[in-house]
Design a protein around this nucleic acid. Structure first.
Length: 805
RNA sequence: GUCGGCGUGGCGGAACAGGCAGACGCAGGGGACUUAAAAUCCCCCGGUGGCAACACCGUGCGGGUUCGAUUCCCGCCGCCGGCACCA
């Protein structure tokens, strides 16, 4: 009988579907396991070969957990709002909702051919009004608590998408999605106050089982730094507050810099001798795009504010004040004290503008470069701080400043509040009404969902307005508070809104009254294991942690963190080792592989391709190896079921070792070595033979990886029930022990030969066996044995020296 | 600049609480079966020398610790990724 993978796969997929084999049951008494993968964006291109890697991995884990007796929630859904769909719809004169439904249908079909054990009854779609009702509801709760607010500020504006971007969406000065230049634009924007959660987002990382690089990246992004705020008085009367991480160097401050956008600059303008020059610089800086500000040479520019001077609070000395775009308006106070002796940027600026450099920490040569070491130096030229270490000086100066009311300890974060509005059509409408009398008024909960109106034209505009703004009969409404004429907010939410809480909806996807019932939220609790891409570390992963903490604070969810464990997979590269892209022509379509070799081969190969965490190039040849492996298992099945002539049960130790290896490797996501172990076992079955029990043990191990062939062979072997619902095989350490061990024999650390001794043989016995070896005898005849080192069951090392040395 | 990660055969990759480097697979070579090919099954497969037994070399480079180092330590080189005028 031939291995007819197409028919077999279809047969079992249908059966799993009909019998709802993978249904998750809220409230079940079995221990629960919630395994999550990042739900796909249903693009028009269909499934990409990048999708099956994480999906297959979590499917294997979920299938194993079910066999181990867990009540498993392994859901799927679609993150369907977003620009590519909208752009496609514009181009083809279609409704985005129609395009979305078509794409979801296509994705569903493709995903089903891969045999994933999703509970399809829990499928969610972020563009479904029954879903986004709750996205809007969460927004309203945030508005209520003051976390959602509208403010006028410079924002990142993508010139191609024609909408604003969050900080996290700007990569190297360009739009992370389309690669177009990002410019700064002053706009009134809805914001979410993620910075209020900065410290908690940081602290709570410690208790989570996230892979370290995710934690590190989130910590970097949050960017906490401790230092002090110091108040400088000025000759203009106003004081300047600066943030510094080096308050110890206060005696070394020789000038001040404030960012060009700072309000004091405008305030002082008529006092300045060079107001024109200052204004010109301000305008120049405002014109620079983010790209220019970061990518241009680090050559410092700036203009002194002539006519105003600052006063150093410890020395009483007057300091010149500059504006320069190397000081960012959006970090700290937008002002710094410049200590050129001990800060590289200040040093460069001071050299360019011939400003004095004072050494206040000894140990370097400040005439040559800034000395920035905090560990070794001693304070000098610093009055009452002289002789102290940097650490001691920091403490002392902060005390001194606090006493005088001139400063205090201060923590700052790089994290910025989240720009939460897009001037595009295909997103969740923001459920807020602008009333000329009452200001921003939230829609009452009873009016949710606020539906996205069906319109003919939804092209983005150049004037920074959302396409929704043109739909007057939708925009014009009455104020829910005063009943007067009002207008709706016309911006929509960013792509990241729907995905910030989707894992909660899976717990209770059809609930009409709540985002999910308390019972479901309590039962499923935290996501036990979440695997996803590194590219979402400072986007979706951080955002959803923030939303979850908010929901926890208002009593909706029972845990302060959403995900107990986070792992991440490497990218699948093209056959040429390059990132897959249409323009390179190196894209592999998973459906083609399924058609050619079957889903089981596809699943197996994508897991065998290499270390799960690392990027791996696709290899068309290597796929065949996995197909060959399945063929060998198939053929073995026929030999076993054909009577098993000449096969005997002499594989016990190997089987138990393989069970242990596969079990442990799945939990450690070392799928490649788990498969290698099964391959070795099959090789051994070919070598030594196997009986039905041996073979069925293998099928159960194989089942999570290649579920269809495992089911079929299970049935052909006359076994009862489905293979995927059998208990996971157990191993017995005592049965893994072999009678004999091969011991490496080294002389002076170099391998000479091997000997076979009984397992756990005593050191003496090993030594005797080694010395009895002909080759070793010869060596010992010519040398003097000084010492022997025995590592039980592994190795013996004989230390010798020449006889007459 | 800074913080992570990684450098192992022709290729993808194994092995690291220090203990037989190259598991498993791909590609390659040989054989069996076949009229033949494919498929399948069996064997070989890091390098150099040798008919062979065997010897020497070999985990990016240079040192060190150790009976023994791919694994630990110090110093370089090279790739990949995060952050970056964040005071």
């Amino acid at each position: 009988m031939k291995y007819e993978f197409h028919a077999i796969e279809k047969k079992w997929q249908k059966k799993w579907d009909e019998e709802k084999t993978f249904k998750a049951v809220t409230g079940d008494s079995k221990p629960k396991f919630y395994g999550l993968i990042e739900f796909p964006y249903p693009s028009g291109e269909g499934l990409h070969v990048g999708h099956p890697r994480p999906y297959t991995a979590m499917d294997i884990i979920a299938r194993k957990r079910r066999m181990q007796g867990y009540n498993v929630l392994f859901p799927i859904g679609f993150d369907a709002f977003g620009l590519p769909t909208e752009n496609y719809a514009i181009k083809h004169h279609m409704q985005p909702s129609v395009v979305t439904q078509r794409n979801i249908a296509h994705f569903t079909e493709q995903l089903k051919t891969l045999g994933y054990s999703f509970d399809w009854d829990r499928c969610v779609d972020t563009t479904d009004p029954e879903y986004y009702k709750w996205t809007q509801w969460i927004f309203l709760k945030m508005f209520e608590k003051g976390l959602a607010y509208k403010t006028y500020m410079p924002v990142n504006w993508c010139t191609s998408c024609k909408c604003v971007l969050a900080n996290e969406e700007v990569v190297d000065g360009v739009c992370e999605r389309c690669g177009s230049p990002v410019i700064r634009k002053e706009k009134s924007q809805w914001m979410l106050g993620i910075t209020k959660y900065a410290q908690r987002l940081l602290d709570d990382l410690d208790g989570l089982n996230f892979i370290e690089r995710v934690k590190i990246q989130q910590r970097n992004w949050i960017g906490r730094s401790t230092g002090a705020e110091v108040v400088f008085s000025t000759t203009a009367g106003d004081s300047i507050t600066v943030f510094t991480t080096r308050p110890d160097t206060l005696f070394g401050a020789t000038y001040m810099v404030i960012s060009p956008e700072h309000e004091l600059v405008n305030k002082w303008l008529d006092k300045l001798e060079n107001a024109e020059e200052v204004t010109a610089y301000k305008e120049e800086a405002a014109k620079k795009s983010d790209f220019e500000r970061t990518e241009l040479s680090k050559e410092k520019t700036g203009v002194e504010l002539r006519g105003v001077r600052a006063v150093n609070p410890v020395t009483g000395g007057e300091l010149p004040i500059f504006i320069s775009d190397y000081v960012l308006a959006s970090y700290g106070t937008g002002c710094i004290m410049a200590v050129p002796g001990h800060d590289t940027r200040d040093w460069e600026f001071a050299k360019k503008f011939s400003l004095p450099v004072i050494e206040v920490v000894s140990g370097g040569d400040v005439s040559k470069e800034a000395f920035t070491d905090c560990e070794t130096g001693t304070m000098v030229n610093s009055g009452f701080l002289n002789g102290l270490s940097v650490e001691q000086a920091k403490k002392k100066i902060i005390e001194w400043l606090s006493d005088k009311g001139l400063g205090k300890e201060k923590v700052n974060y790089k994290l910025r509040d989240w720009v939460f509005a897009r001037q595009r059509y295909w997103g969740e409408p923001i459920p807020i009404v602008k009333c000329p009398v009452c200001g921003f008024v939230p829609l009452p909960e009873s009016e949710l969902p606020l539906l996205l109106p069906e319109v003919k034209s939804y092209e983005p505009t150049d004037n920074g307005e959302s396409p929704l703004a043109h739909i007057r009969d939708w925009v014009e409404c009455t104020c829910p508070k005063c009943g007067g004429k009002a207008e709706r907010e016309t911006d929509t939410m960013p792509q990241w809104a729907g995905s910030s809480w989707y894992f909660l909806r899976y717990m209770d996807p059809h609930n009409k009254n709540e985002l999910a019932s308390k019972e479901a939220l309590d039962y499923w609790g935290m996501v036990d294991w979440y695997n996803g891409g590194m590219e979402h570390t400072t986007l979706h992963l951080l955002y959803s942690r923030f939303w979850h903490k908010f929901l926890y604070d208002i009593g909706v969810v029972p845990n302060p963190e959403p995900y107990a464990k986070r792992t991440s997979h490497g990218m699948i590269l093209g056959e040429d080792g390059q990132k897959m892209s249409k323009s390179r022509g190196n894209v592999i379509n998973p459906t083609d592989i399924v058609n050619q070799y079957g889903a089981d081969t596809m699943r197996l190969y994508i897991m065998f391709i290499g270390d799960f965490e690392k990027a791996a190039p696709w290899s068309s040849d290597a796929v065949k190896g996995c197909k060959r492996f399945l063929d060998r298992i198939w053929n073995l099945g026929e030999r076993v079921s054909g009577g098993g002539k000449g096969y005997s049960r002499n594989n016990e130790a190997s089987i138990h070792r393989t069970i242990k290896k596969v079990s442990e490797d799945i939990d450690a996501m070392k799928f490649n070595t788990a498969i290698a172990a099964m391959m070795s076992l099959v090789n051994e079955f070919y070598d030594k033979g196997a009986d039905r029990d041996d073979f069925c043990a293998l099928l159960r191990l194989l089942s999570p990886f290649a579920p269809h062939i495992a089911e079929e062979l299970w049935q052909l072997q006359g076994q009862k029930g489905m293979c995927c619902t059998q208990p996971w095989p157990e191993y017995d350490e005592s049965k893994m022990v072999e009678a004999e061990k091969t011991i490496a024999v080294q002389v002076n650390g170099k391998l000479k030969t091997t000997v076979t001794v009984a397992t756990d043989a005593a050191d003496d016995a090993i030594t005797a066996a080694a010395c009895a070896d002909d080759k070793i005898k010869k060596i010992l005849g010519e040398s003097e044995l000084i010492k022997t080192i025995v590592v039980k069951n592994k190795l013996i090392n004989l230390i010798v020296k020449p006889k007459n040395a």
